[in-house]
Design a protein around this nucleic acid. Structure first.
Lengths: 206, 206
DNA sequence: GCTTGAAATTGAGCGGCGATCAATTTATTT
DNA sequence: AAATAAATTGATCGCCGCTCAATTTCAAGC
């Protein structure tokens, strides 16, 4: 019973992604099953595999959509040229998102492609664009540094925040500890370090 | 052909854990299969399920062993009462370990128990002990701050380092980027920030 | 040494999974 | 109307985690 005109290919694609998001947000990445997705969108497995290469591919796109939504939220933060304030606002936005979509966010880093399979370029690009926001917030205090250096500081901050959300997501924060507090401490101390630190050269060795 | 006296229960337990470690270090957590473990240790699936509740249980114990080994490595770092040196050595030890056992380390946080299943207390304890080492090494740097403050800064740094190892382990660093250089940047900048933080005019001996 | 009960071990089997693909149905083009 | 192309189906494959009745072994009591 092929129903070619029920939905366009793109509509179908989004039906599958949205269904997957709902499943993951409810049951976590473990609960994501091809048969369930197909059932939820009213098609069969075969159609799913006509849309996506496999479950890894589908999961990557689902995670890509999560990154897009985070990007959209972060884009709304107005930058004021005050790095500490800008970063705190950005981080607040970031952490709010991860709190509101814990399982979808978890899925972004929980999911791992097989080793022989490279991360698609379009996915890396989404991450890069998020990083670019942080870089632009940092830029005012790093105007005298190289692009490479700015880039790395942004990545260090990003990875640090990432560590907090990972540990928070797996319930390893202490009582009374929140990623908001931790992130605020990180940002303030790190920005202080950038302002006052002498040449913090970015070696490429070791 | 039950062979009760080939191995004690404990020997068998370690055979299984070691076999699992080998599989994971070679193929990643994805490659961990009950049938393969059983084959590798010369027993059948049934015996494996006599030793462990299920694959989640086995994986938790395998990860526990990884934490123990990291703990052992970090314990060997001699503390010199020179906070900066101790810190650098500890971080180096920590990163060396995660660098030498990338897939085993990755498995520690990649693995997620089903939501209705709490992390065993013995596992949380291993993590806490590891954290305590790192915290104690970081604490002297912050000797002029309140205990709460010391504690939080130590944890912020720990989580940041953690984020880097996570991203490195899952192959999400850029070309030429290593957790060693990222950690160096993080620590230098962060310590600079601690030295020159605006709400603490007391310098220290660094 | 024999019996007996407990523990260890086996492996066929269950249900479910991701993935495949020949066959079928539909839409579009000619 | 026929031919072509695309979408859709679902039976099927091989593998998975896991179960459990049956079997084998060991050790203790006699």
């Amino acid at each position: 019973m092929a129903r070619r005109s029920d939905h366009t290919r793109e509509e179908l694609w989004w039906l599958a992604i949205d269904a997957s998001r709902k499943i993951v947000e409810k049951e976590g990445l473990r609960g994501l099953r091809a048969r369930q997705i197909a059932r939820d969108i009213g098609y069969t497995i075969g159609t799913l595999y006509n849309l996506f290469e496999d479950l890894d591919d589908l999961t990557m796109h689902m995670n890509g959509e999560t990154l897009d939504q985070l990007m959209e939220a972060c884009s709304k933060v107005e930058l004021t040229q005050n790095p500490t304030m800008d970063l705190e606002r950005l981080v607040h936005c970031y952490l709010s998102f991860t709190h509101e979509n814990p399982k979808l966010w978890n899925a972004v880093f929980e999911h791992k492609l097989p080793e022989d399979r490279p991360v698609p370029e379009w996915f890396s690009e989404k991450v890069s664009k998020l990083l670019a926001i942080i870089e632009s917030a940092l830029a005012p205090i790093l105007s005298d540094r190289s692009e490479t250096e700015i880039h790395q500081h942004a990545r260090v901050l990003w990875m640090s925040l990432f560590g907090m959300t990972v540990l928070e997501g797996s319930g390893r924060l202490q009582d009374g500890e929140t990623s908001f507090m931790l992130a605020k401490t990180l940002i303030k101390t790190y920005v202080d370090g950038l302002k006052n630190g002498q040449d913090s050269s970015v070696g490429n060795g070791l």
